[in-house]
Nucleic acid binder design. Structure first.
Lengths: 213, 213
DNA sequence: ATTAAAATGTGACTAATCCTCACATTTGCA
DNA sequence: TGCAAATGTGAGGATTAGTCACATTTTAAT
């Protein structure tokens, strides 16, 4: 099992920036690089995004781009990190004060809606979440992010169901979370109407499991 | 990164074989090409698979390879089609005679196990299902396959719950199916123990929804 | 102010790889 | 047999990620 996993990933690590921007000048330029990448991904998708075009739109040379982002994945990774930080904050806030079944029901429902709208509205993130599947290192980021998000959910579960096995609750939370992302990817690709129905069904299923005794 | 072919086809269509092998000789060679591709994907993943190496291992020239597979995605697509045909047959058989709730419960449970084992055992399929996410055309194949599989499930549902809205049952089946695939992808990447627990929880959730009144 | 070191910037160039194409060979068949 | 269709070949075109030797700017210590 573990060896098969190893066989699949020639251990692709996302390298850290060759160099952190320490001066004002370079910090501004890095900002322009990220903005250019974001625009291009929204317009064409991350596969079609060319490093040369990112540099050109940011008004820097290709060499400067590679000074701060050691490879193409690094700049996509940087955008993904920015987004995951934002969404974690939002999730944490939404679930912080939940203290009973009804509250969970409402908070969870709202959270799903927030996420769904985010997926629909943010082309860069849609592209990254999809593209992510083919990239081992980005997939690890996605999984780590899912675990972090699921942790908020399992914290609530542990409060509401103190008698249940905590490990099982963590597993449940992780599964429910990933299924939600899958449901949304599906919802996006089937069109708005069926997508809305799919998300509603997902909510029902998830809640039944989360509130089960 | 991958998929240079994409820039030649803005439509993201997977072209059909430039030429169908009509003579015995070429049919054998195409078989060797597919076998070589399958081996290489199992060994290194489809991204790392090089067309030149496929040709070399199959004992044909690069030109011959491109004679029957117009681009790299086409050969991956061909392998994917082979597997989806096999699994559809297996699913159809498992669900054919289901006529009551208990039967569905058992058949569905077995089906999940079969699929789970298939995912665990077949590296090519694992790679293709993952890589698929980054490729629009392959994603359409996956979705079409999911719809086809879900159709078997929704057929049973319509029998068992004739009062329910048929369209809603179809949507439910599709969602349950895709969630299952997501659960399994997750199960694979977290290791055997947690993976087994995840699949068990998925089964419980799916069944509750499928059998709900 | 001077100056050395560190940070930053540049773009021609390399390497890797997908895919094409002009031409050679083999097969089916009238 | 002879010819058209099918099949086979591999050097080379084209694209693009990523490198590197060198130029310029900033920092900071004397």
């Amino acid at each position: 099992m573990e060896d098969t996993a190893a066989r699949f990933s020639p251990q692709e690590q996302v390298a850290s920036p060759r160099r952190a921007p320490s001066q004002q000048r370079s910090r501004e330029r890095v900002g322009r690089m990220l903005a250019a990448a974001s625009t291009l991904i929204a317009e064409q998708g991350s596969d079609a995004m060319r490093m040369g075009e990112v540099a050109e739109r940011a008004g820097v040379s290709i060499g400067s781009l590679y000074q701060f982002f050691p490879d193409k994945r690094a700049i996509i990774w940087a955008l993904a990190e920015r987004y995951t930080a934002e969404s974690q904050a939002c999730i944490s806030a939404a679930l912080a004060d939940v203290s009973n079944a009804e509250g969970l029901s409402q908070a969870f429902s709202e959270l799903v809606d927030i996420y769904y709208r985010l997926f629909l509205a943010e082309p860069v993130m849609r592209d990254i979440w999809s593209g992510t599947q083919a990239d081992k290192a980005l997939r690890q980021l996605e999984l780590a992010d899912s675990r972090a998000n699921a942790e908020f959910l399992s914290a609530v579960l542990k409060r509401l169901r103190p008698a249940a096995d905590p490990v099982a609750l963590e597993t449940t939370a992780l599964l429910v979370w990933q299924m939600g992302e899958a449901a949304m990817r599906l919802a996006i690709s089937v069109g708005r109407d069926e997508g809305d129905r799919l998300v509603a069904i997902y909510k029902r299923m998830a809640l039944r499991e989360l509130l089960a005794e």
